[in-house]
Nucleic acid binder design. Structure first.
Length: 951
RNA sequence: ACCGAUGUGGCGGAAUUGGUAGACGCGCUGGAUUCAAAAUCCAGUUUCUUCGGAAGUGGGGGUUCGAUUCCCCCCAUCGGUACCA
């Protein structure tokens, strides 16, 4: 009997369902282990072979952990709110809930096909009112809390109000947005509306003005993704930044704890570094510059207060609040033009244009706080509104960008640091001695930094200050398909919904277009918006709302009294292993950590960090094949040419058209091409090109005939190959279903793991799966030969035991470092050896089955059953290795001369160092290498190698 | 522009703390089997070579008896950059 994967998979699925093999309960007798995948957004395109990479790895690990005695929680769910479903709804009228559910069904079928051991009873869906009830509940908690800096934790706003009533703003040290101080009397005299405005500056969920990408022509707010070079990607309409009152989360209050928490995590250093850089803590000074002809001061933050005497001008972000006020009449027109142009650029574009300097003089001046000189104030792209204070003091002599700016606008450059003692030091390096700097002259840079900060404070100009690059998180979206805010506004005061009114459900709509004013479609549901208790918030929450806490919900997914029971939260605690893509390296992980810390502060959870160990899986890429289309038509006909022709005629005369990879021969290689059959398949697929000319070096295909040059028989139109994203738009998507159908789920799983290290990106190559398919056949043939069961009770020999136990050892070791690809190689080597040994011993083969069960769950379950077991192999113990089987009699040493291997030497295990040296010296093979040279020394590294050093 | 990662045969990749570069596969070549094909099995497969060897892990330098591994500089590709998910 051959291995029939379809039959076996079907049998296993029903066996697992019947025995509830993957059901997880709260079993305090066993240690817990929580393995989590980043949950997917259920897109209409379904899963391609890249998606399950991480899921397979986590599935293997979860099964391995279960077999080694842990109670393993391994759930799956859907990040179901999102923009694509809404856009689809706008285009087709299909309600996002319906399309999302349809997509989820497809995902589920695809996931089931691969044999994952999820406990589906715990599935979550962020768009389910039973789920987002608790997202809203947490939002209300954020709204009702502020952050106490002294106690380093969140506290109820009700306590803050009491403090204000008793002592005004001085009574509390809290994270807040506005510096204005007030007394208890002033607080008590405020109207409810005024008090609400003050509290907004303190709440962890609060409202503030934020900028959105407004597209007038489309009448909607666009995601950054949908804007290219100041124009909408769809339609190419102009886009501008527009201020809007929006909800935000005060994540900055947690900056220091988010930074500290990283130290305890078992994440890669690169991941931690990315998070640290994202938080961007820097210490320096806050300095105020008095405006020359206005009351206001400009606040700047600098990490280099020592350079203050080098300040010869200031630069504001174009969006800075003061720009309009201080610009002089003469400069107004130029300033307005510049501000408008800057508003059209994205932050990336503004930063990426580092080499071309632009800016505009406001006409206004500031007073230098130490020299009292008047210095000009400019605006420029390279200063960003949301970084620091949106204003900088420019030091052209020691900052590359300031220098370029000064050179362009012909501004004074005062040299204030003598770096002559450090010839290698570049601009901005903190070395040298201060010059031209009044009281700082002669000081080293480091001392000058301290001294300036001290002087700033004493003279009331500024003070020491810690700045974070991290910004408060914008939490509003002007969209339909997201969680409604549980907030009503009555008489200008924001009021949270009471818990018994939750969830605030999304009203059913059939028109998903935004309103003319750029408000969410919800604004059109007037009877939902207007209630006696106030006006509802019509914005919805962003994608990361539901995903910032879902890992807790899995612990107790059906609970309707709490987001999870205390019992479940205390048992499962945190995620032990989290696998997902690097694209979430900062955003999602940062928000989840923030929410977890907040829930910890308010006593809801016991842990401060949600993800103990993190693995980032790489992407599986596809091959993208392009053909060259001439930009100019020939006699009114489109013309495609071979890549060689395109190169010789100049690539700028051609556009690249992605073509379905199935039409291309040798796709992915340098020599990929389409033959006549390929051209005909292409024409069937894209009938608009049926009249086109397809020219290559061997001839041209046109209207069904191939006119050859010379005696060529077929077209060989070379295509351009590229490794890139696997995506619908490149027609290179490989669906796991097709692979599973043909090769079986076990083969698919093992092949995905075999491709390479889990953390690296690598291209998909369907052809390569043959190797794993052969391996599975060979493995099966150890149990069945020509349909006969061949396993018996014969005692294993030494070689068999050694092969088995070195495999067990290696698999344990590799799994502990998540090196799945080398596990597969190891299995191949084991099976090759057992084939060679003609193994039939049950003792050996039974362990092979248990060993491979996490990787090939179907095959293993089937064989386990045939070996006579009634319970699942996935609840069996994992094999342990015996060191005694692995002891070698002899060690083979490479004998090197100057580090280069020249010969080998077999030495009995345990031979002494000097004895090995003598044996090596006596080797006749070495004479030719040592002859005429002077032997300097011999290095013997036990169990490694011997090296002769000669001159 | 900034932050992070990656770079080894024709291809995917392997190589404990610095110690035999190319494990395990794909592909390719030759052979066995077959009427033939598929499948299977066996052998070979980094490049160059005067067949003695020599070179070789993106490029250039350095440390070391010895570097894919450690350090410095550079190049290329990928991910992220706060409203794609």
């Amino acid at each position: 009997m051959d291995f029939n994967h379809k039959q076996v998979e079907q049998w296993c699925k029903s066996f697992w369902a019947e025995h509830q093999t993957y059901k997880v309960t709260l079993d305090t007798d066993k240690p817990k282990y929580y393995v989590l995948d980043m949950f997917p957004y259920p897109s209409g395109a379904g899963l391609h072979v890249g998606h399950p990479l991480g899921y397979i790895a986590s599935d293997i690990y979860a099964r391995y952990k279960r077999q080694t005695g842990f109670n393993v929680l391994h759930p799956m769910g859907y990040d179901a709110f999102g923009l694509p479903a809404e856009q689809y709804a706008i285009q087709t009228g299909v309600h996002p809930a319906d399309s999302t559910d349809k997509n989820i069904k497809m995902y589920r079928a695809q996931l089931d096909n691969i044999g994952f051991n999820y406990d589906w009873d715990r599935q979550v869906k962020t768009s389910d009112p039973k789920y987002y009830k608790w997202t809203q509940w947490i939002f209300i908690k954020l709204f009702e809390h502020y952050y106490d800096i002294a106690d380093k934790k969140a506290k109820p706003v009700s306590e803050l109000i009491t403090l204000f009533e008793q002592g005004g703003s001085e009574a509390v040290k809290a994270a807040h947005a506005n510096e204005e101080a007030f007394s208890a009397e002033a607080w008590n005299a405020m109207t409810a509306h005024e008090q609400d405005a003050v509290l907004m500056n303190y709440r962890l969920a609060f409202r503030k003005v934020a900028y959105v990408n407004w597209c007038e022509a489309l009448g909607t707010v666009l995601a950054n993704d949908e804007v290219k070079d100041g124009f909408s990607e769809r339609g190419g309409h102009p886009v501008e930044k527009r201020p809007m009152m929006q909800w935000a989360l005060r994540i900055t209050a947690y900056a220091e704890r988010l930074l500290d928490g990283l130290n305890k995590l078992d994440w890669s250093e690169s991941m931690k570094t990315m998070q640290r850089n994202w938080i961007g803590k820097s210490t320096g000074a806050q300095v105020f510059f008095q405006l020359a002809d206005f009351e206001e001061k400009i606040e700047v933050f600098t990490t280099r207060p020592d350079t203050i005497f080098g300040v010869s001008f200031m630069v504001l972000a174009p969006e800075h609040d003061l720009v309009e006020k201080i610009s002089t009449i003469e400069q107004k027109e130029a300033i307005d033009k510049y501000v408008l142009a800057a508003g059209k650029k994205s932050e990336i574009e503004r930063m990426a244009e580092g080499k071309t300097v632009s800016g505009c003089f406001t006409g206004a001046h500031a007073i230098h706080p130490f020299t009292q000189k008047r210095i000009p104030i400019y605006i420029s792209d390279y200063v960003l509104k949301d970084y620091g204070t949106g204003a900088i003091m420019a030091v052209p002599c020691d900052d590359a960008r300031d220098k370029r700016f000064a050179e362009k606008f012909d501004l004074e450059i005062v040299n204030i640091i003598d770096k002559s003692a450090f010839p290698d030091a570049g601009i901005g390096d903190k070395v040298g001695v201060m010059i031209n700097s009044d009281f700082l002259n002669g000081m080293k840079v480091k001392d000058a930094i301290k001294e300036t900060a001290k002087q700033l404070y004493e003279r009331g100009i500024g003070k020491r200050y810690t700045n974070y690059r991290l910004r408060d998180a914008n939490f509003s979206r002007q969209r339909y398909w997201g969680e409604p805010f549980p907030i009503k506004t009555k008489d200008g005061v924001a009021v949270a919904e009471s818990q018994d009114k939750l969830p605030v459900e999304l009203p059913i709509l059939d028109d998903f277009k935004p309103t003319a004013e750029g408000k969410s479609p919800l604004a059109k549901v007037t009877d939902w918006v207007n209630t006696d208790a106030g006006i509802r918030e019509t914005d919805t929450m962003p994608g990361y709302a539901g995903s910032s806490w879902y890992f807790f919900r899995y612990m107790d997914a059906l609970n309707d009294k709490a987001f999870a029971s205390k019992e479940a939260l205390n048992y499962w605690k945190e995620v032990d292993l989290y696998i997902g893509g690097t694209e979430h390296a900062v955003g999602h992980l940062m928000y989840s950590r923030f929410w977890t810390k907040f829930l910890y502060d308010i006593g809801e959870v016991q842990i401060e960090e949600p993800f103990k160990k993190l693995i980032n899986q790489g992407m599986i890429q596809g091959v993208i094949e392009y053909i060259y289309l001439a930009k100019e038509k020939v006699n009114g006909k489109s013309k495609f040419v071979c890549s060689l022709i395109a190169e010789s005629q100049g690539l700028e005369n051609f556009s690249k058209l992605p073509i379905h990879v199935d039409f291309v021969e040798d796709y992915g290689s340098k020599d990929s091409y389409i033959n006549r059959a390929g051209i005909e398949a292409f024409i069937q697929w894209r009938p608009e090109y049926k009249d086109a000319i397809y020219e290559c070096g061997l001839g041209a295909y046109e209207m069904g005939t191939f006119k050859a040059k010379g005696n060529a028989k077929d077209s060989k139109l070379m295509t351009e190959s590229e490794v890139g994203k696997m995506s619908k738009r490149y027609f290179n998507v490989v669906n796991p279903d097709t692979i599973v159908e043909r090769y079986g789920a076990d083969c698919f799983r093992m092949y995905e793991m075999f491709l390479g290290p889990i953390e690296q990106s690598k291209p998909w190559d369907t052809q390569g799966i043959e190797g794993v398919a052969k391996f599975i056949k060979r493995l099966w043939s150890l149990f069945y030969t020509d349909g006969d069961w061949r396993v018996n009770d014969v005692e294993p020999n030494k070689e068999e035991l050694k092969a088995l136990h070195s495999a067990i050892k290696k698999i344990h070791k590799d799994l502990n470092v998540f090196s799945f690809n080398t596990c597969i190689s190891q299995f191949m080597m084991l099976v090759n050896e057992l084939k060679k040994q003609q193994t039939t011993s049950k003792i050996i083969l039974q362990d092979v089955v248990r060993l491979i069960a996490p990787f090939a769950p179907f095959l293993a379950e089937e064989l386990w059953n045939k070996l006579g077991h009634k319970t699942s192999v996935h609840h069996s113990d994992y094999p342990e290795f015996e060191e005694s089987y692995l002891v070698e009699d002899t060690v083979t040493y490479p004998i090197c001369v100057n580090g280069k291997k020249r010969t080998l030497l077999d030495v009995p295990n345990g031979t002494a160092k000097d004895e090995i040296e003598q044996m090596a010296k006596a080797l006749p093979d070495l004479d030719r290498w040592l002859e005429g040279k002077q032997l300097v020394k011999i290095i013997v590294v036990p169990n490694k190698m011997v090296n002769f050093v000669v001159k």
